[in-house]
């Protein structure tokens, strides 16, 4: 099927343009340094000279919780940033350069063209987050204690769904406009919007941001399930890609 042929091309592109390398390296580094930072931060604070003796005693000893919080905080921030940076050109750049027109005069449906973009980014992010998770798990084991692997796996799965939402949103933005710069601006706006709504008290519980909180809870054994947020996130992915397809199908290239 032609979807897999384009997916092969997209993955080759991720590799050749070093996009895969960048995502992998960024995530792996944060996987490694997050537990390390959690371990060292209190010591670093204490080592500040002239720290009043009483205050130094107030700084708590680092725990497993700190390691997981660091990991999720760093990967959420940089994962979302990468999702935006690596997806913003996906469709817009091909329209800008004329390669989309070139490829689509051969037997290739526009649905397959779009879906392959998403799939390739999904594969890259999955691979990179797996490496980051292994790195974090191993360092946490060395510095603190073993994390329960099943709930840590669940945490990473939830983060991945969160990233997919942002990838799909950015691909949609990239489809709507003709230039990469415009796509970046639009996607950044969408990101702020999703984060903004996500931080509102009641509605926020239904938004992808909640996935990260749920994940932390899971990994630390204090599960506070946010199933609605998961369903909404999956729904958003499908909706964004669906709209992108409806728009792209009618576009003249």
């Amino acid at each position: 099927m032609n979807f897999f042929i384009v997916l092969r091309k997209e993955l080759m592109e991720q590799w050749r343009t070093k996009r895969l390398l960048v995502i992998l390296a960024v995530m792996a580094i944060f996987g490694l340094i997050s537990p390390l930072l959690a371990k060292l931060t209190p010591d670093l604070l204490k080592s500040i000279p002239d720290m009043p003796a009483g205050l130094a005693d107030l700084i708590p000893e680092p725990t497993l919780t700190d390691a997981v919080l660091q990991y999720v905080k760093n990967l959420e921030q940089f994962g979302i940033l990468l999702a935006l940076l690596m997806s913003m050109g996906s469709v817009a750049q091909e329209k800008e350069r004329g390669t989309a027109a070139m490829m689509l005069t051969h037997p290739l449906s526009r649905a397959a063209f779009l879906l392959a973009k998403f799939a390739a980014l999904a594969v890259t992010f999955t691979l990179s987050l797996t490496v980051a998770a292994l790195a974090c798990w191993y360092y946490t084991l060395l510095l603190f204690e073993a994390l329960p692997w099943d709930s840590f796996l669940a945490l990473n799965g939830l983060m991945l769904v969160g990233f997919f939402v942002y990838i799909a949103a950015t691909i949609l933005c990239s489809t709507l406009v003709r230039s990469q710069g415009a796509a970046a601006g639009l996607a950044f706006g969408a990101l702020v919007l999703i984060a903004g709504i996500g931080s509102l008290p009641r509605i926020g519980t239904y938004f992808p941001g909640q996935l990260f909180n749920w994940g932390v809870g899971l990994a630390l054994g204090a599960a506070d399930p946010a199933w609605p947020a998961l369903w909404v996130s999956l729904g958003l992915i499908v909706t964004f890609l669906g709209i992108a397809w409806l728009v792209f199908r009618r576009q003249e290239l």
């Binding site: 390296a25 792996a28 580094i29 490694l32 390390l36 360092y139 510095l143």
Partner: peptide, 10 residues
């Protein structure tokens, strides 16, 4: 030693 892998990736 924990920083060595980080430096290698860098």
């Amino acid at each position: 030693p924990f920083l060595i892998p980080v430096v290698i990736i860098q």
